[in-house]
Design a protein around this nucleic acid. Sequence first.
DNA 1: CGGAATCCTCGATGATACTG
DNA 2: CAGTATCATCGAGGATTCCG
Lengths: 145, 145
Amino acid sequence: MGVIPRKDGLASADRSQDPQHCPDAADPRIEALVHDLIGRVADKWTMLILELLEEKGELRFTQIGKLIGSISQKMLTQTLRHMERDGLVIRTVHPVVPPKVEYRLTELGQSLGAAFCGVWIWAERNLDAVEEARRTYGEPPHPRG
Amino acid sequence: MGVIPRKDGLASADRSQDPQHCPDAADPRIEALVHDLIGRVADKWTMLILELLEEKGELRFTQIGKLIGSISQKMLTQTLRHMERDGLVIRTVHPVVPPKVEYRLTELGQSLGAAFCGVWIWAERNLDAVEEARRTYGEPPHPRG
DNA sequence: CGGAATCCTCGATGATACTG
DNA sequence: CAGTATCATCGAGGATTCCG
């Protein structure tokens, strides 16, 4: 009981996360840089916008805000700027009135979206497992009555 | 110039992030849950500990702290507790003196590590591309100087 | 419409001290 | 050694206002 009847859209999609062992970075400098980079791109809003633009193609500023729903104007601007600066999105300003600014992914942004795909799929597939773990957390391994 | 001569350990590893289109979650409820779950596991320290345990197998509390280096004792405890609660790690207390507590990944934790693998590889491979984008950010598209 | 600027709050994190 | 508890800080992020 309590299991949400889902459509299994992603869940049965494929098995992109076969238990492969991920070799660690050989160089500590590289590892630090990689860690820093991930810290910036693995952001909450970045991931959502990435998914959105990957799906919709090209969107206006307000469009993105409405589709995400919960994001503030400040964070939307800030996140888009960072993504643009990191080469993930292209920002196009149409010189019309009222202003019209559109955003779309670069190839780099698309490749990042693809890389995150495995994590999304993992989350989809293991939602129940994690929730189960959280429920049983704290219970004694052998309840001796 | 300025390009770091790296060992290319991960960079030439494989191509786990072929530009596949990642289908979005069909159900908004699922998407919300997935987003929430990712928000918890995509944490900075979680990812580092995940990598560490995946590589080393089983480690003591202090071991992990020293290997990561920059983490505070508080965050280490907190992160490990969250990971244990979410079913990512197993915490084993050895009833000896002085105390000895060891941590290792569950299968769920290992699968998450594998899922993140694509992102690590992406970051390794596109470090230069992102840095290049950051350098050229702000420059006019067609410098008519 | 698409921002920039400002103010403000609150939670994440670090530092410190204590304990079993 | 492996924590727990407490206090202090600091910046992420929200709400609001103004502008081109």
